[in-house]
Design a protein around this nucleic acid. Structure first.
Lengths: 151, 151
DNA sequence: TGCCTAGATGGTAATTGTTACCAAAAAATG
DNA sequence: CATTTTTTGGTAACAATTACCATCTAGGCA
């Protein structure tokens, strides 16, 4: 867990709220904090699971709504894993994903050489690229170990 | 629509079925054919919608099951769009995706310069990469036009 | 060709993830 | 503080997907 990322994220969130006149609620702050403190990509339900201990009476509906708000503010990313449900990621700096086709796990990958792809010369039919990420699909270490026991 | 892709896909599917002792059913063949004939990424329900006309009494459940089987065989890809439900793609050659963050549309992008990223030097923590794709996130031509009417 | 068996299909019911709705509660503003 | 606006909580609705089981079909064999 990276305390700086947590602090910066919260600060950025607070100033964005003031800018747009959005009330700063306990729920929004705690849900964002929980996301920033994690290194994985929890589902809405997993977020609910870990935040409800800090906010008594927290509703699942609120979690969905707040996550949506945070995405709109640009402080959280929505991810679409091969598993099932939508996932959320508090890390908004450019990073890529290792996707295991066996267990469906998605692991973050930070890699400088993938961060600077040359896109300018591409014919994109009027599509304006704002960001990108590379999805590497394959077999993760755990699953690879399982399928070939001794080699 | 690319007749070669359809034919090749069906042939590959049939030999894979024989290899693994999977029965060659009408439903499997028609569902795969429908996917190969399309250029977009339909949901299970959209596949159901266009195949049920050719197979009377086709069940939605079967569509889900067959799509799963086709993915396992490797003749169809499962995609996870920002929209909601899972989508399926009969094109299994390497290609990339333009993802519009406004309308959630996903457009295929074929681009040679993205097809040969240098991955060998990467530290992947034991992850074995089999394939990859680049997701370009931004605003599609239609949505861009809407938000800035005259410029 | 017709029978047999494993495996696939159809249809309904159950489950899961997500959204709609509205009354009650909490922020912001002056 | 009082007011106004927005959010929250909770339930009900909804949509996508899966479980289950009786029926049916493809493929192998006599």
């Amino acid at each position: 867990m990276d305390q700086d990322r947590v602090d910066n994220g919260l600060r950025r969130f607070e100033s964005l709220c003031r800018e747009r006149g959005l009330p700063l609620t306990v729920q929004r702050r705690e849900i964002l904090k929980a996301l920033l403190q994690r290194d994985d990509h929890p589902t809405a339900d997993q977020v609910y699971g870990c935040v409800k201990e800090r906010i008594t009476g927290l509703s699942r509906t609120t979690v969905y709504r707040v996550l949506e708000t945070l995405v709109r503010l640009g402080v959280v990313r929505r991810l679409h894993h091969p598993g099932t449900s939508v996932r959320f990621d508090g890390k908004i700096s450019r990073h890529h994903h290792l996707v295991c086709r066996k267990c469906n796990r998605v692991i973050d990958l930070e890699n400088r050489s993938l961060d600077h792809l040359e896109l300018s010369s591409m014919r994109l039919h009027g599509f304006q690229v704002e960001d990108y990420s590379v999805h590497l699909v394959g077999v993760c270490a755990d699953c690879g170990r399982k399928s070939r026991p001794t080699s």
